[in-house]
């Protein structure tokens, strides 16, 4: 564990909590892509099956459980509790265009052809593209509430911090997880456009992000 990894996990937790509290307190999921949240729940489900097979540390187990509970709770809020405010018309990204290639790639590129490894690889590739429906929805509606942009900022920052963590671990312990690194680079690149808009529009400007 290093500072980049810890900061990344905290950033990830902050993002998930920001989103959950925003929906819970405003009693509305307007502007939020339910599809992305379902994909994130799927990422955690397929990645954290090792909760039942290996014990790494109390921190590892607790964080995995927190991420699982909060992601499913967020999906519940969107599709059940506050489904009246769910904007299904603008949440129109075809997730099958993500699931099919990611599933195929997980079978082709993995560290071991075992169910747990293939599911882990699937979760790594899926996480790289899971934010697509949300970013697509923002381009479609042309705007995003400032809280939603803060959610996206911390979510994008978390994997960027993981990249720093992997650089650190490579130089200090020779650790290199090729699948996670390549996928993490792709995932972070997807946020670059958003990061630019976030800094120029939200932090300096009106506090609301409206796209050109």
């Amino acid at each position: 564990m290093n500072i980049f990894r810890l900061a990344g996990d905290v950033s990830h937790l902050v993002a998930i909590i920001i989103l959950f509290l925003k929906i819970w307190k405003s009693k509305s999921c307007a502007g939020i892509s339910g599809k992305s949240q379902v994909l994130f729940a799927l990422v955690f489900t397929s990645r954290y099956l090792d909760l039942f097979t290996v014990f790494i540390s109390a921190y590892n187990t607790i964080m995995k459980l927190v991420f699982l509970v909060l992601s499913y709770a967020t999906v519940y809020l969107i599709y059940m509790r506050f489904r009246g405010s769910y904007d299904s018309e603008n949440d129109s990204f075809r997730v099958e265009f993500l699931l099919v290639p990611v599933t195929g790639l997980a079978f082709l590129e993995n560290y071991a052809f075992t169910p747990l490894e293939i599911l882990w690889t699937f979760s790594i590739f899926l996480e790289a593209v899971a934010i697509m429906p949300q970013l697509f929805m923002i381009t479609k509606t042309g705007e995003a509430e400032s809280i939603t942009t803060h959610y996206l900022f911390f979510l994008g920052l978390y994997r960027a911090l993981y990249l720093a963590n992997w650089v650190w671990r490579y130089h200090t312990e020779g650790f290199f997880d090729q699948i996670a690194v390549v996928s993490g680079v792709v995932q972070t690149i997807f946020y670059c456009d958003f990061f630019y808009l976030y800094v120029t529009r939200v932090l300096r400007g009106s506090g609301k992000m409206s796209l050109p």
Binding site: R5, D9, H12, D50, T53, V54, I56, S57, N60, M63, K64, F67, Y111, A112, L116, E117, W120, Y162, N165, F175, F176, D177, Q178, I179, A180
Partner: peptide, 10 residues
């Protein structure tokens, strides 16, 4: 390439 218990990241 980390396998099984070597995967200590979230």
């Amino acid at each position: 390439c980390p396998l099984g218990a070597e995967k200590d990241e979230l």
